[in-house]
Simulated assay, not measured.
Amino acid sequence: MTQKTALITGAARGIGLATTKLMLDRGWQVAMLDRDAEELARASDGLEGAAPFVFDVSIPSDVDKAIPAILERFGRLDAVVNNAGVAEFGPIEQTDFAMWRRVMDTNLDGVFLVSQATLPALKETRGAIVNIASISGLRASTLRVAYGTSKAAVIQLTKQQAAELGEYGIRSNCVCPGPVRTKLAMAVHSQEIIDAYHDAIPLNRYGSELEIAEVIAFLCSEQASYVTGQVIASDGGFESTGVGLPALRK
C-alpha cells in the first residue's frame, strides 16, 4: 500500500505540530511547512516520516517553490491542512491597514495560495483539504476585526472549494477551534480570562491541541469520505450557546 502524505502548514508548534505527530502515528508521511526555520528544525527533529520545509505561505513565490519541493520529496499529496495563521488583536479604530494586511496575507491569502498550488496533486489522489479557521470566524468578538474577518473568509473559501472541487473527488472542510490550551494562550490569558472562558463554555474548560488534531485527522481520512463543505466548531460547545450567560444555564 502506498503511504499517504499530508502537507501541514504552520507545523512548527501548536495545533500544526500536534496534528503532525498524530498523522505520523497513524501511518502518514508529513511535509511540515513553516516560516520559522529555527522552531521548525527543533519540532521536526527525530520525527520519522516527516520532513521540514521553510517557506512563507503568504508569499506567492515561496508557495510556488514549496509545492514542487514537497512533491519531489514525497511523490504525492493526499491531504493539505492549511493551519498557518497569525493573530493580531486590537480595537477597530486602532487597526491600521498594515496590521489588516499582515493578518489577511497569512490567514486568508496563504490558504488560497497553498490550496491552488496543490490542486493538481490532490486531483491525482482525490485528496482532502482541511482549512483551520476559528470560533472567531463564526461569532464576533471584541478586538478581532482583522482576525475574525480573515477566519470568516476562510469558512466561505472552504465552501467554495467544496462546491467546485467535488467533481474531482477533492473534499474540503473547515475546523473552527475554540479556546485551546496552548503555551501562547496560557502566557497571555489572565486568570480572569481563563475563568470567564470556563464559565462561557458548556464543557467548562479549554480544549487541547490534540483534541483539535483528532478532528483534523478524521477529516483527512477515508472515514470522512462523504464529508465535504462542512464547518466543524471544535470548541466545547462555545459557539452553540449564543450569548451563553452562565447564570441562565443553571
Score class of each variant (00 low, 15 high):
Ile193Phe: 12
Phe53Ala: 05
Ala98Lys: 11
Ala98Gly: 05
Leu119Ser: 07
Arg42Thr: 14
Leu7Arg: 10
Pro177Asn: 06
Pro91Glu: 11
Lys21Asp: 03
Val81Phe: 08
Thr95Ser: 14
Gln160Ala: 15
Ala121Lys: 13
Gln161Arg: 12
Arg139His: 05
Pro179Glu: 09
Asp235Arg: 05
Ser221Asp: 06
Gly85Arg: 12
Leu22Arg: 15
Asn131His: 07
Ala69His: 05
Glu39Ile: 13
Ile70His: 07
Leu143Lys: 11
Pro202Lys: 04
Ala66Gln: 05
Gly229Ser: 05
Arg249Glu: 14
Met186Val: 03
Gln116Met: 11
Thr95His: 09
Ile132Tyr: 04
Lys65Phe: 02
Gln29Gly: 11
Val154Asp: 01
Gly127Gln: 05
Ala121Arg: 14
Thr106Ser: 00
Asp62Thr: 10
Ser150Tyr: 01
Thr142Phe: 12
Leu22Thr: 07
Asn82Arg: 13
Ser115Trp: 00
Phe112Pro: 00
Thr142Trp: 10
Asn131Pro: 03
Lys250Cys: 11
Asn107Ile: 01
Leu24Glu: 08
Ala37Lys: 15
Arg139Leu: 07
Ile135Tyr: 04
Glu222Lys: 15
Gly14Thr: 12
Ala12Phe: 08
Ile132Asn: 10
Ile232Val: 14
Tyr206Glu: 06
Pro60Ile: 12
Arg73Phe: 08
Gln191Pro: 09
Glu48Gln: 15
Asp199Trp: 15
Thr228Tyr: 09
Asn82Tyr: 11
Leu203Glu: 01
Gly148Ala: 06
Arg101His: 08
Phe89Lys: 13
Glu164Pro: 01
Cys174Gly: 03
Gly85His: 11
Ala196Ser: 12
Leu184Gly: 06
Ile8Gln: 12
Pro202Ile: 08
Arg42Ile: 13
Ile193Trp: 14
